[in-house]
């Protein structure tokens, strides 16, 4: 029996009917055509499907769409503001933090949450903070650099204001 759900996705309210078993990631990909969120595994390990639900990073393959009823959802497609890349998107480009691009949306969304909680992470904290995201291309080396780049960029204007 389909259930009607409403949520805000990337700032826009959407209402759709879904089967109870529809995973949030499939809802985004199939019903909203937001195919930037990827499925990389079926055991909740790889993190390719990471999005923000009510500001928290979650694995959208391990949440039912009905569970997100009433929530605010941000996917990779909603990260740029007014055509301006988010500092993390910019960081990944500047530091070559992506190769095949498949893990990238989930990696960036996880990094958004990571920097949100810890704006000045050490390399070790970044590495530990990414334990829920697999990348098979980069060896993580440049992903760490990319997040460091973004952290610096995000913190810079604050420092300028403070001084």
């Amino acid at each position: 029996m389909p259930t009607k759900i409403t949520m805000t996705v990337n700032g826009q309210s959407v209402t759709k009917e879904v089967e109870a078993r529809t995973l949030l990631v499939h809802f985004l990909r199939d019903n909203l055509q937001l195919t930037g969120t990827h499925v990389g595994c079926d055991t909740s390990n790889c993190g390719a499907c990471t999005i923000l639900v009510d500001g928290n990073a979650v694995k959208s393959c391990t949440m039912l769409a009905v569970q997100a009823d009433g929530s605010e959802v941000t996917t990779i497609e909603g990260l740029s503001q007014n055509g301006e890349m988010h500092p993390l998107q910019e960081g990944f480009r500047e530091e070559h933090g992506l190769q095949c691009g498949f893990c990238t949306p989930g990696m960036i969304m996880a990094a958004v949450a990571l920097l949100d909680r810890n704006p000045n992470p050490s390399e070790q904290e970044i590495r530990e903070g990414l334990e829920g995201n697999f990348c098979r291309c980069t060896g993580y080396h440049n992903i760490v650099r990319s997040i460091q780049y973004a952290a610096k960029k995000i913190n810079e204007p604050k420092k300028a204001v403070a001084s």
Binding site: N56, M63, A110, A113, R117, G129, E131, G132, N133
Partner: peptide
């Protein structure tokens, strides 16, 4: 436990 995504939920 798990990772940040798992710990959130």
């Amino acid at each position: 436990i798990g990772d940040q995504q798992v710990r959130n939920i």
